[in-house]
């Protein structure tokens, strides 16, 4: 019987410092067959293992058709991620995955797609942006709204600039605390709703970020007539196994690792924002 907990060795091909505490690791399995066989959909995650320390769940940010490397953008904030931040190209780690339900990209075809993110919540959706940009004709209007606490926290400036040049694409950024030179909105990401329009019924919305930000966005979307079923969110919980066995990530009945991390809002509506779930 296959050991579902066993990682495979991967090499860090490149390390990019995105912000003082945020970095991207571009990985490649050391076994070429494993690299060739690996496939995923945007929104899924891997369990990343650091030798002698342990595993952590990290979403995949690369485009699934980009088969050279497998990219993970990580904030150095916990026991494993702080140690991961010290790794350099050539270092070896363990990877197992991909796990979970990704973003509903088939359902999004032919619709306006609104991506609303906060903080490093943009990472699980960058994979979606790259996916849509590479297949632009299959989707209608693309709206990207990203908010950060401090303007210095914003990563991927150049990408946002590039994406806003694309046809039928709107990029709106917000920072609660703006440093001099910040040309975007100062305030909460939810204030950006007044600077755009959303066609209810024509739009599918993907949310990722801190839960208060997602809840505030859901409220704004509801005010604009967007149906609950057109809203999807990516959740984050403590995970040890990644395959629905260990019990850490449950939000009521759903296991975030197995039934999510991407959920249609109606599946979480009853417990989202309930302290303790």
């Amino acid at each position: 019987m296959q050991n579902p907990y066993l990682p495979r060795e991967a090499e860090i091909v490149e390390r990019v410092q995105e912000a003082p505490t945020i970095f991207t690791l571009k990985l490649r399995f050391t076994d070429p067959a494993a690299q060739g066989a690996y496939g995923y959909v945007p929104g899924q995650f891997n369990m990343i293992y650091l030798y002698g320390i342990g595993e952590v769940a990290i979403s995949i940010v690369s485009d699934p058709d980009e088969t050279e490397t497998l990219d993970h953008t990580i904030r150095a904030v916990g026991r494993v991620t702080r140690a991961l931040s010290r790794l350099q190209p050539g270092d070896r780690i363990g990877v197992r995955g991909p796990y979970g339900r990704g973003w509903p990209l088939l359902e999004a075809q032919g619709k306006d797609v609104a991506l609303i993110t906060g903080g490093l919540g943009c990472a699980p959706l960058v994979s979606v942006i790259r996916y849509i940009v590479a297949r632009r004709e299959r989707f209608r209007r693309l709206l990207i709204m990203q908010g950060v606490k401090r303007s210095d926290d914003l990563i991927w400036h150049e990408q946002y600039q590039r994406w806003r040049e694309l046809p039928d694409t709107q990029v709106l950024l917000a920072a609660e605390v703006a440093e001099p030179g910040w040309t975007w909105h100062q305030g909460l990401v939810t204030a950006l709703f007044d600077r755009t329009h959303i066609d209810p019924g024509q739009t599918i919305v993907f949310l990722c970020g801190p839960e208060p930000m997602m809840r505030a966005s859901i409220y704004e979307l509801g005010q604009r007539g967007v149906a609950d079923g057109d809203i999807w969110l990516s959740m984050e919980r403590n995970m040890h196994c990644g395959i629905g066995h260990c019990g850490h990530c449950m939000i009521g009945a759903p296991f975030v690792c197995r039934n999510g991390p991407v959920f249609p809002y109606p599946e979480l509506k009853a417990l989202l924002g309930k302290k303790g779930f």
Binding site: N3, Y5, L6, P7, E9, Y51, D91, R92, G94
Partner: peptide, 19 residues
């Protein structure tokens, strides 16, 4: 015990699953 990771002199990491 689910598996063992071994770090080699060249920096590579070998994973051996328990049966």
């Amino acid at each position: 015990k689910l598996w063992t990771a071994e770090r080699k002199a060249d920096g590579s990491v070998e994973f051996a699953g328990e049966s």
